[in-house]
């Protein structure tokens, strides 16, 4: 199964990741997300349901994507984040810049 699945319909894009969002994956994903935005996506949903860890490189990718979307008047929502990832986003102050939703039934710290 590929580690990244991208579905795009007009200005909406759903990105599903199936492995940790690390610096290595961020390098691979960055040009693909820029391509999605170039094709017209302004509203992006990043599904982290199958992701157990995000490192600073992954955080950098999320910020860069948010910055690119903001330039075209769009935004990004993160869904399916584990309680640990929500906690990380909270202490790194990222929850002020993204809408972050946890996994259904997961104990959210936010």
């Amino acid at each position: 199964m590929p580690s990244i699945q991208i579905e795009q319909s007009e200005n909406q894009a759903l990105i599903q990741l199936q492995e940790p969002l690390t610096s290595a994956l961020a390098r691979e994903l960055r040009p693909r997300l820029l391509e999605v935005i170039a094709k017209g996506a302004t509203q992006m949903v990043m599904d982290l349901s199958l992701v157990d860890l995000v490192d600073s490189g992954g955080i950098g990718l999320l910020i860069a994507t948010r910055n690119s979307l903001a330039k075209v008047g769009g935004g990004m929502r993160i869904v399916g984040a584990s309680s640990e990832i929500q906690h990380l986003f909270q202490v790194m102050r990222l929850d002020r810049h993204f809408e972050v939703e946890g996994k259904p039934g997961d104990g959210s710290l936010s």
Binding site: I63, N67, V91, M92
Partner: peptide
């Protein structure tokens, strides 16, 4: 800062 795309590693150490 919130728009920076790098420079968070040492903060993670400290946290």
């Amino acid at each position: 800062c919130c728009r920076d795309t790098c420079g968070r590693g040492l903060e993670i150490y400290q946290l």
